[in-house]
Amino acid sequence: MDKQIGDGAGRAEIAGTANVLVPAGGLSPACAPELVAEVEAARTYRLRARSANTLRAYASDWSQFQGWCWGRGLEPIPALPEVVATYLAALARAGRADSTVTRHLAAITWQHRREGLPPPSARDTHQLIADTLSGIRREQRARPTRKKAAIGAKDLAGMIAKVDGLGTRAVRDRAILALGLAAALRRSELVALQLADIQLVDQGLTVRVGHSKTDQEGEGATIAVPAGKVLHPVAHLNAWLTVRGGAPGPLFTRVGTRGEFTLEAMSDRSVARLVKSYAKMQGLDPETIAGHSLRAGFLTEAARTRASLAKMQEVSRHKSLKVLMGYVRSAEQFDDHAGAGFI
């Protein structure tokens, strides 16, 4: 519940703040403004513990949980463990991936803590939530999964060629496609890029990725992108910068139907739709393509051309080599095949 500190001009509401020490006799008016500022700083730091994309996803997931509860006459907060376990099962029945189900649970936990309430899992003495989630994961592991296909350099060059014209949207889309593969960027990373994250250098350009899925603390990484002989990411990006201008803000902005744009960031879903659209023009099956296909394309091509794991990891920023080895094994599965001499 919310606590109130001070009175008059020094009054502040503190939502979800635990372990705030207030003297038994009350807080003196002289101390109130300082404590208010410190509480606000603590709130700001808590929000920064999650990326902007994560917070947007949590807000959407929480809204869906609320709607599901209200539609069934159930209370979303404080939510009973039985209610949460049933909701997770409903998501799984609707075909949601276990990773999505897990994120919905994280959103519910986040909202409870934000409201200063213990999360449902902390009150789940019978482990209903944990067991339900475990069962969902076990069932989904038993199902055959179809991974999204990687887009190779040749196909991507074809896709870029099919982006017709010199209009604002066309120039932007070519730059997104080329840079997305050349820097092995996730779609969330593409839309999070700011103009200040790009530096043109003699050999090409550098991209500063300030926050990513595997870098929750925001340490950041700088990726080198060569000028290129096939995809020409620097040339395409320069063309977009000429249209976009030098105003600070998102690197890739939304573009209207008439080519007009403001300095408003694209959504990661719009990147996925963009990639699927041009993949279809190239003759690829859009059902097998996703925003991740650009990043997967870089790794697949790097493995095919015998790039070292260290150099691949430099660009992809994977924390573990296990995932990278999967791309290498896929590219090399027919090399020196054990049956090549007799099959």
Rank of each mutant, 00 (worst) to 15 (best):
Glu301Ser: 04
Met1Tyr: 02
Asp155Trp: 09
Phe261Gly: 07
His232Arg: 13
Lys319Ala: 14
Gly10His: 01
Gly245Ala: 12
Phe252Trp: 07
Arg93Val: 10
Glu217Trp: 11
Tyr58Asp: 06
Ala265His: 05
Pro76Trp: 02
Arg174Trp: 08
Glu264Gly: 01
Arg269His: 14
Leu263His: 08
Trp70His: 13
Gly249Asp: 08
Gly165Ser: 08
Trp110Phe: 15
Ala30Thr: 05
Ala89Gly: 11
Arg258Tyr: 15
Phe334Val: 04
Phe298Ala: 08
Glu219Trp: 12
Asp131Phe: 03
Arg103Ser: 08
Ile160Trp: 01
Leu185His: 09
Ala302Arg: 07
Val171Lys: 13
Leu237Asp: 12
Leu35Pro: 05
Thr44Lys: 13
Asn53Ala: 15
Leu294Lys: 07
Leu179Asp: 11
Ser121Cys: 01
Ala150Val: 11
Tyr327Ala: 04
Val230Cys: 01
Thr262Leu: 14
Leu231Val: 14
Ala15Trp: 09
Arg304Tyr: 00
Val20Asp: 05
Ile160Lys: 00
Gly210Arg: 15
Arg138Ile: 10
Thr44Met: 10
Leu91Lys: 04
Arg143Trp: 00
Val207Thr: 13
Val243His: 02
Leu166Ser: 14
Lys319Leu: 13
Phe334Ser: 09
Ala290His: 05
Asp285Ala: 13
Thr288Gln: 13
Asp173Leu: 12
Gln313Gly: 06
Asp215Val: 13
Gly220Arg: 12
Glu40Cys: 09
Thr206Pro: 03
Ile176Gln: 03
Pro120Val: 05
Glu332Cys: 01
Pro29Asn: 07
Gly67Gln: 13
Ala79Ser: 04
Val225Asp: 08
Glu332Asp: 10
Ala272Cys: 09
Glu314Gln: 15
Leu105Gln: 06
Ala265Pro: 07
Pro248Gly: 09
Ser277Pro: 00
Ala142His: 04
Leu274Pro: 04
Gln203Asp: 14
Gly210Lys: 10
Gln199Pro: 03
Lys311Ile: 10
Ser63Trp: 00
Val101Ser: 03
Leu47Glu: 15
Thr125Gly: 08
Leu21Gln: 03
Leu241Tyr: 08
Lys3Phe: 02
Leu181Val: 10
Arg317Asp: 05
Ala239Thr: 04
Leu74Glu: 11
Asn19Gln: 05
Lys276Trp: 11
Leu274Thr: 04
Val328Asn: 01
Ala307Gly: 08
Thr54Ala: 09
Asp131Cys: 00
Glu40Leu: 14
Ser60Phe: 10
Ala12Thr: 15
His337Lys: 09
Met325Ala: 01
Ser212Leu: 12
Asp61Pro: 02
Gly8Met: 11
Leu193His: 00
Leu105Thr: 06
Gly210Gln: 15
Thr17Met: 06
Ala92Pro: 00
Ala157Phe: 06
Ala227Val: 11
